[in-house]
Every structure is written in C-alpha cells, then in structure tokens.
Computed example of a mutant assay.
Amino acid sequence: MARPSRSAAKKPRLRALPGRAAPAPEAPSDAEATLAYARSVLEAEARAILGVMERLGDDFLRAVQLVRDCRSQVVVTGMGKAGHIGQKLSATLASTGIRSVYLHPAEAVHGDLGRVGRGDVILALSNSGSTEELLRLLPSFKRMETPVIALTGDAKSPLGRGADVVLDIGAIAEACPMGMVPTASTAALHAVGDALAMTVLRSRPFGTEDYALLHPGGKLGRSVQRVFELMRTGPANPLVRDTSPLSAVVAVMTKTPGRPGAACVVDKAGKLVGIFTDGDLRRRVESGLTDFTVPVRELMGKNPRCVTPETLVLTATAQMRELRVDQLPVVDVEGRAVGLLDVQDLLAAKFV
C-alpha cells in the first residue's frame, strides 16, 4: 500500500498560548444601539439639570444678591472640568455687564491671588467640594473678607463648610460607562451658573443696547448699531449751498475725503433741501447737457429721503436697498444736514 505524500499529511494544529483565550470574533456595529446610548447620555444630563431645579431656594437668592450687589468684580475659580465651566460662567457674567475674571486655583497659590481684593465675590466650582487647590485658597479669601459662593455636589464637603453660600447640585450619577468622567455633574454646574447669571441679569437695568455695546463685533453688534457710528461728518460730509453752480458741486464731490458719490444741498440755514449724485451728473452729460453754470437747486433731487443719527443702520440699509440709492443724507431734529451715509461705509462694516 502506497504511503501518502508529505503534502497530503495532516498539518499540525496551532495551540493557544498558555493563559490566553482565543480572540472572539468582532461583533458587528449596531447603529441603533449606539444612538440609544447617546440618547441615554443626553437623558442623564437632562435629569441632572431638572433635579437641580428642585434644590433652588434661599441660598440661591442670597447668591443672586451677592453677585448683583458686587461693587468690584466676581472672581470665578475651579479646577479641571469645573474650571472650564467656571471660565464660561465668568465670560457670561462679563458679557452681561458684571465685571468678572477667572482665577486658576493652582496659579492663585503662586501669586495670582493678588487679582482678588476686598469687595470681590468668589464663585468656587467643585463637584466633590474637596478639590485641594481650592481649599488652600479659602483661608486667604476669609482674610480678604471676600464672600465665597460654592457650587458643589456636596454641601457638607470642606468647600461647602468653608463657603458663605452653598449652591448644592446634589450627588449626580455621571453619564459615563465607567461612572467617572464628569458629564452630568458638569452639565448641572453649567446650568446652575447660567441660572445665576441670567437671574442677576433680569434684576438689573441692562438692555439690548448695553449688551450690544459689549459685543461690537459680528451680527449682534451690527444689529443695534446706529447711523451716527458710520455716517460721514465734518470735512467728510459733502455740503453745498443751493445757490452753488454745478461746477462747484462737482468740485466738492471730487475733493471731499473718501470721494462720496453725492453732495447734500442745503439752504442758508444749513437745512437739507436736496441731493445731487454722480448718477445725476452722468445722466446730464449723456444727454448733452454740459452747462456747469446752472445752479444746483435747478438740478438736484428735491425732498430726498433721509435718516437721523439715531436710526438703526440696519433700517437705513434696508431703506437704501428699497430706494436703490448709494447715499442717504443724515439730518438732525431741525432738519440740518449733519452727515451722509454712504454704501461704501456699509460695505466696510459688512452690512451689505
């Protein structure tokens, strides 16, 4: 009987290494399970925030009063994730007219504590209430006679016991597979900070114009900007008397700084009676009318649409679009031409 060839012989089996289990096949990804878990994280954080609502009481009212009546600055401090929440809280307070700075606890013990002075109010954030860097600052805060508001998850913690006012968010289960990563607790701290800042804002005389003053950039700042902030005034405001010849009007439009495409026509009292534009000049020349000795009062556009210095720039911009003009005269309450709003200035300010 013939022997089997070597190639047909059985191959030796690979044995697993001692102490190691054979790797399990990788389970396919489950999109629905992934989304369900993500939703559970949001639900846990929402529950944490709703749970804090029931805890607001007299201490919250005291905290509102301390922050509202602060005559110096609100110093916000915290370590780690709570510190990041604190930085946002400080920025929110500052943006709503409350002077506020963020103080890093670790830097504070090495000299930055000099940023704090009598008359300040301290907002200290720590979920555990036992953050060592924060606790080291409490004696100094006491000596400076600066009241401390603690935002913490444990009112009986060292921070809670050392504070003048405690905003207790309670023990919160984190929305984390390990139950350790600050998630639901920081959401609650964030929400309480916002509630405090907005309640203080509501109790103070601070309106949209005040808010815009602190936000000069972007869409928000533009939304409440007034014409007087952009209009051309003084030597940049092209004014001509109604008795001036067309040649003088052209000279004014040419020599005025910024080369506006129009001139405001005024009477002897300085009141606006008309406007003459580059377009008016171009149409005359195209029609063969080249007599530059004609008084501008015979050529100007009479009763022009105009705005006041206090008009919102957005309103003036909409008016210019509607009229399809590039300039709008600006007049005061007595009808005197005090400025000119030019489309080039609107472009530079990103209104158009």
Rank of each mutant, 00 (worst) to 15 (best):
V165R: 04
V166D: 10
V166L: 03
V166H: 01
V166A: 04
I169D: 06
A171M: 04
A171K: 09
I172V: 13
I172K: 06
A173W: 04
E174I: 03
E174W: 01
A175K: 03
P177V: 13
M178S: 08
M180L: 15
V181M: 11
P182H: 13
A184S: 15
S185N: 08
S185D: 14
A187L: 07
A188M: 05
L189V: 02
G193S: 11
A195V: 04
A195P: 00
L196N: 00
A197Y: 04
M198R: 01
S203E: 14
G207E: 14
E209I: 08
E209T: 14
E209A: 15
D210F: 04
Y211P: 01
A212V: 15
A212L: 02
A212D: 11
L213H: 15
L214Q: 09
G217E: 11
K219P: 00
L220T: 06
R222E: 08
R222G: 05
S223P: 12
S223I: 10
S223Q: 03
Q225C: 13
R226H: 08
V227N: 05
E229P: 02
L230F: 09
L230R: 00
G234R: 08
P235C: 02
A236F: 09
P238A: 09
P238C: 12
L239I: 14
V240N: 08
V240C: 15
V240A: 14
R241H: 11
D242K: 14
T243F: 07
S244D: 15
S244A: 15
P245K: 10
P245A: 08
L246K: 01
S247I: 11
A248C: 06
V249N: 15
V252G: 01
V252L: 01
M253N: 01
M253D: 13
T254Y: 00
K255Y: 10
T256V: 12
T256L: 04
P257R: 07
G261D: 07
G261V: 11
A262P: 02
A262L: 05
A263R: 07
C264G: 07
C264T: 07
V266L: 12
K268I: 15
